[in-house]
Design a protein around this nucleic acid. Structure first.
Length: 510
RNA sequence: GGCCCGUUGGUCAAUCGGUUAAGACGCCUCCCUUUCACGGAGGAAUGAGGGGUUCGAUUCCCCUACGGGCUACCA
């Protein structure tokens, strides 16, 4: 097999929790890379000093690992194209910014924030609420295009704070080919002279993405649809830097939208509607605020990834449950949707339930055991190997196992007596007293034997077994759920069974 | 405001000019089960509007409406 040259990257900013949409972008990158026997790269876009959050990078890596889509190259796993943090690549951006200036495609700008605001205010009108720094105004600003060469050198020598801006050509059409959307035409008059290099020496996204995609030999660039409006800047930069024929193919992914209302799904929506938006728990180091993640909410990574893949893509067959391997096999860019999709937490839970149902006990066991321990239920592997298959189809989330498994290990604390009291009478009381004694003398303790004695006793007492099953369930489980009562009785043993019956009989007699 | 992207049931969506317009989630009814769930059988529910093109438009084109994104020395 010849090594593929396919190289794709996921390039998040380490500014906080990893959002659903981010994971999906990473996933599509991963699927495309693996499908083409290529390389999946993680690049950390930490050029914004102000928004940088310590720990976020490791957290992103942890999330990707949990999802099973760990990058082949990245800050954690240096390849031949590092460093993989943009903050460590400053010299490269500076070099290219200078090249662009020398070519006349960029210029120094010395305008202070106040001056910029003044310009915007001056040009702001009803019909133009957000004036741009562009060909129409740049000669009236303080920059190396409007100022004399001497003045510019003087300002530079004095160390005057400045940025480097791209010199957008006037009235030029830029055509971009997007793998999902086809040809898109932009007019350069619509886009401003974007800042390329900030006053602190850091590049903006616009410069960094082009330089890094080039230096890292990226062949396909997936990113969110929100980047479409600035894509012409990137295309122009690829051209100006002389790399046009190496420009990656673009794919702008549709957005994941709020379930209700409209707009991009945000962390706030999750808080508001009660579902996670981040892959894993995220604790903000400054505020200590903890935001729930899908993992901790009880999602299986298989289900999380499956659900995400189906949000904006499908294989056309109508099948919905796919493993990561199957997704790799079936993934294709031309089946990615153009329109954004509203996130539906109910459907997400359905995916998880499907995966829990389909998962082997050996897969579930360690995860369930961990959750049980957190809830003070210490269950042996042997016991859980028996119990998990009995209850897994009743669990949408892994955390549901707590409720479904607890009564196998502890006598129920809350007992729903209200469900039996209305139809409770002396006859039934006598039945259970008698049957309890029968159980004590039962030699073979197995589900079938327990059920037989139950039916026999019911026959003698002339009560329909069905009328007695619900009370028995309440006695053993405490509520109306769980597998067949006789299986439960068998599993918890003779001692616990008779004890629970006795306890309830006492309660009911009061 | 401008530019760009989008628009099939409540939601996710199939359809690549001709179908009774799939399927899934959710909802409802019934069966199984005198628990809950699983499973099974049904049901309600969809092409934003208007023009074209065509023998024929959900499908191609245009306009309108609506939704979204961008319009920062944030990504």
């Amino acid at each position: 097999m010849t090594a593929s040259t396919t190289r794709v990257r996921f390039a998040p900013s380490p500014t906080g929790g990893l959002h659903l949409g981010g994971v999906r972008t990473a996933l599509f990158n991963y699927l495309f890379a693996k499908k083409n026997n290529g390389t999946f790269i993680l690049r950390i876009e930490d050029t914004d000093q102000g928004r940088f959050v310590p720990g976020a990078e490791q957290y992103i890596l942890d999330c990707l690992e949990w999802c099973g889509i760990s990058p082949d190259e990245g800050p954690h796993k240096e390849g031949a194209y590092g460093p993989y943090r943009q903050s460590e690549r400053k010299s490269s951006y500076k070099k290219y910014a200078e090249q662009l200036i020398n070519q006349g495609h960029a210029y120094y700008a010395f305008d202070t924030p106040e001056e910029l605001e003044k310009m915007r205010e001056a040009f702001r009108t009803e019909s133009n609420p957000s004036p741009q720094y562009d060909s129409k105004v740049r000669l009236g600003m303080n920059n190396s295009l409007s100022l004399s060469k001497e003045k510019v050198n003087e300002l530079l020598e004095q160390g005057t704070p400045h940025v480097v801006r791209i010199n957008m050509p006037a009235s030029t059409e830029i055509t971009l080919h997007d793998m999902i959307r086809g040809e898109i035409v932009f007019n350069t008059d619509q886009v401003d002279d974007k800042v390329l290099l900030k006053a602190d020496g850091m590049p903006t996204y616009h410069l960094a993405v082009v330089v890094d995609d080039h230096e890292m030999k990226i062949t396909q660039a997936f990113r969110g649809e929100e980047w479409l409006p600035s894509a012409p800047v990137h295309v122009l930069l690829w051209d100006y830097l002389g790399w046009k024929n190496q420009m990656p193919e673009w794919a702008h992914l549709p957005l994941i939208l709020k379930p209700d209302g409209q707009g991009k799904l945000s962390k706030r929506d999750g808080d508001r509607l009660g579902f996670p938006v981040f892959a894993m728990d995220w604790q903000d180091p400054k505020s200590n605020e903890l935001t729930k993640g899908f993992k901790e909410m009880g999602f299986l990574p298989e289900a999380f990834v499956n659900m995400l893949a189906m949000l904006g893509w499908n294989d056309g067959t109508g099948e919905e449950i796919f493993s990561l391997e199957q997704l790799i096999e079936r993934f294709s860019i031309d089946r990615i949707h153009k329109g954004g999709a509203k996130f539906d937490f109910e459907k997400a839970k359905w995916f998880n339930q499907e995966w829990i149902k389909r998962s082997e006990t050996t897969r579930l066991l360690p995860l369930v055991q961990e959750i049980l321990v957190k809830n003070n239920i210490h269950a042996s592997e042997e016991a859980l190997t028996d119990i998990i298959p009995m209850v897994k189809e009743r669990c949408q989330l892994l955390n549901d196992f707590v409720q479904q498994v607890a009564y196998f290990f502890h006598d129920p604390v809350e007992i729903d007596l209200a469900s039996v009291q209305p139809k409770w009478d002396e006859k039934k009381h006598a039945f259970f007293e008698g049957w309890k004694t029968t159980l004590n003398h039962l030699e073979a303790w197995d589900a079938a034997a327990i059920e037989n004695t139950f039916k026999e006793a019911a026959g003698i007492a002339q009560i329909k077994p069905g009328e007695l099953q619900l009370p028995l369930r309440i006695m053993l489980v405490g509520a109306k759920f769980g597998p067949t009562v006789f299986d439960i009785a068998f599993r918890i043993g003779k001692e616990a069974t008779t004890r629970r019956i006795g306890h309830c009989l006492t309660l009911l007699a009061q």
